[in-house]
Design a protein around this nucleic acid. Structure first.
Lengths: 220, 220
DNA sequence: CCGTTCGGCTAATAGCTGTTAGCCGGAACT
DNA sequence: AGTTCCGGCTAACAGCTATTAGCCGAACGG
């Protein structure tokens, strides 16, 4: 049996209304996300989602358009958030190494902090139906292309050393996807530790010198 | 519409029996693997698999125990093949760097050459039902632990430099999973090129010195 | 040349799916 | 107080699922 964590506490305690500060839709979205992560989109039924927020399956349609729409919203907002993080990261510097470090930090941090969204976003593209799928794939391609350019810039400036920028950028991106699969908020490694180490991995991976340092320099 | 490639040609040409050299079961397994990869286990119906090998859904049961069994066979043989590759790799040397290089080569090569098996193996554990799931997860844990030990050995000998061997081994393993998602036999990069570059990435990632070289040394 | 087995087929079963229709209690406005 | 509307409910629908049962032609062994 899959265990829902956290979301039940957010639901209004049956009779005492919080005044609409937290919409019922948000609860449903959160519960759906949780279930999609745990058992997959196709293996999750509307009745399951309903049970997780304390109602029957059909009642969900008073708040939600369809199961497909629920997935589509999750996936598009996730891709847009990743892209926004990437753009902020590259705008913060002109140095290729610094930019790749920041972009990887944003990438990994999102995959750690929003691991459910990221997990579903990576694994359920196949379950998305056509108008949405194309849109998400376009965003995803744009995101990948951004990282590829970052690597290519560093190679052009002679600070990175890889045969194929495409391969290296795939490798960096795949690191993040892994994080969303195994990261746990209550694990032995803090979010900052994972973010720092993984962005160091990224710089090492592209052959940038001076990444022998093991721990993060104190932010003086 | 999802397109089946290759397997139809393997099927006996309707009337001319190959003498049982290629069992019907192998065709079915291959078709199922192809469909599981393309649309996922739950989204694939027995009728789909049947159509891919030229028969109706129910007829499959003359060759196959169940859909679940089909998945279980695919996933266990995949994990066992990966473990076997790992064992051969580590037995080939005593040097930590050499062992990690070889193990990563085996890992990446398997994910490139058997990308469908590897892809399904990584993504459909959730669809596996209980006696099988536990078995596959055990094998997987063993595999992961092997890579972690490899990294830890290198750190102990002072040739690798990472804060967390666990994190680094996850990173290396995630690289392989990525390969199974994007690698194509007819792509611009040969299997050998991907294998070599990714194993170099792995050594760079764990902070091993002397990985600035860009191309593989000619095997003299 | 007859019986058996193999490997296909269709029909049927039993169950589950997302979604719609329509009912209804209670809160909220006027 | 009366009306409206929100947000639950059950019943129903239409469709699809894996799997089983049982039929039947053809190949094969004797």
């Amino acid at each position: 049996m899959y265990v829902t964590i956290g979301y039940d506490q957010l639901a209004t305690p049956a009779g005492l209304d919080r005044g609409g500060a937290v919409d019922r839709f948000d609860d449903i979205r959160a519960a759906a996300l949780d279930l999609f992560t745990g058992r997959g989109f196709h293996a999750t039924t509307m009745a399951d989602i309903g049970a997780a927020v304390g109602m029957r399956g059909p009642s969900l349609y008073k708040h939600v358009e369809s199961k497909q729409d629920l997935l589509a919203r999750i996936m598009t907002t996730t891709m847009e958030a990743l892209l926004a993080g990437y753009r902020t990261a590259v705008a913060s510097s002109d140095d290729p190494a610094q930019r790749l470090r920041r972009a990887t930090e944003a990438h990994v941090r999102y995959h750690a902090r929003h691991r459910l969204e990221a997990f579903v976003g990576n694994r359920e593209i196949r379950s998305l139906v056509e108008p949405h799928r194309a849109r998400v794939l376009t965003l995803r391609a744009e995101y990948e292309h951004g990282f590829r350019d970052l690597v290519a810039d560093g190679v052009a400036e002679g600070v990175f050393h890889v045969d194929s920028a495409r391969l290296a950028s795939y490798a960096v991106l795949d690191l993040g996807m892994g994080v969303s699969a195994w990261y746990r908020e209550d694990g032995e490694l803090t979010e900052d530790a994972v973010v720092w180490q993984y962005s160091t991995f990224a710089l090492r991976l592209v052959g940038h010198r001076g990444q022998e340092r093991l721990s993060r320099p104190s932010p003086a």
